[in-house]
């Protein structure tokens, strides 16, 4: 039950985009068509589901106080370790996908390197570390669930946004608001809509 609750809340209540603004740069830049948004969302969800558990293991067995050597607290190294894991993993995925599934590679190709510097991925790992400290994530399984949930939340957000922006091309927007201006305001309104989920508890 606790795990299901974590899953639901990481998708809707603590939505990466609307509650924490993670991954806004690619969110604004790549949300111009639904098709590319679907591709990027898939890639982000996949990388997120893999890197959060990986970083959970590192956090638990290397970085936490007294984990590696008795009396040594390595948690100040977590930024550099997390980003190294993410960058290496993205590189690895790119090579594997290129080798075994050229069609998928062509679809995701340009997005994969972008993901290494997507704040949603790094933010997911840092939040996971905070939630471990607060006792909200207690085991490996829950870290997988959190990674998957937060990835799906980001995916939903970018696809919704892309669909709205496709419609927006036919509307008459004041010239200075065209492009990023209106995108921010739409995201804000979507965020207000997502606030109705807050407080839901299973």
């Amino acid at each position: 039950m606790e795990t299901l609750n974590l899953f639901i809340s990481s998708i809707f209540i603590d939505n990466m985009v609307f509650a924490f603004f993670f991954g806004m740069c690619s969110y604004i830049a790549v949300s111009k068509s639904v098709k590319t948004a679907l591709g990027l969302g898939l890639a982000v969800t996949f990388v997120q589901t893999m890197t959060v558990p990986l970083n959970y293991l590192l956090n638990e067995y290397v970085l936490a106080p007294n984990a590696l050597v008795e009396g040594v607290d390595l948690s100040f190294l977590s930024f550099i370790i997390f980003i190294a894991v993410i960058a290496a993993f993205v590189q690895l995925v790119e090579m594997v996908v290129e080798k075994f599934s050229p069609t998928l590679y062509n679809q995701l190709g340009i997005f994969l390197p972008l993901i290494a510097v997507n704040c949603a991925i790094m933010g997911g790992s840092l939040f996971m570390q905070q939630m471990v400290g607060a006792g909200e994530i207690n085991n490996f399984g829950q870290s997988v669930v959190y990674g998957l949930g937060s990835g799906i939340g980001w995916w939903i957000a970018i696809v919704m946004m892309a669909a709205i922006r496709e419609r927006c091309t036919y509307s008459n927007i004041p010239a200075p608001l065209k492009g990023p201006g209106i995108a921010f305001i739409i995201t804000g309104l979507l965020g207000i809509a997502f606030m109705i989920f807050s407080g839901i508890q299973l």
Binding site: F20, F21, P176, P180, A183, F184, I185, G191, I192
Partner: peptide
């Protein structure tokens, strides 16, 4: 709440580009 920050940025862009 977070959404208002987005709307303020939207308004800043609006004013700046005008």
């Amino acid at each position: 709440f977070p959404p208002m920050a987005l709307i303020i940025v939207g308004c800043i862009i609006w004013a700046h580009r005008s």
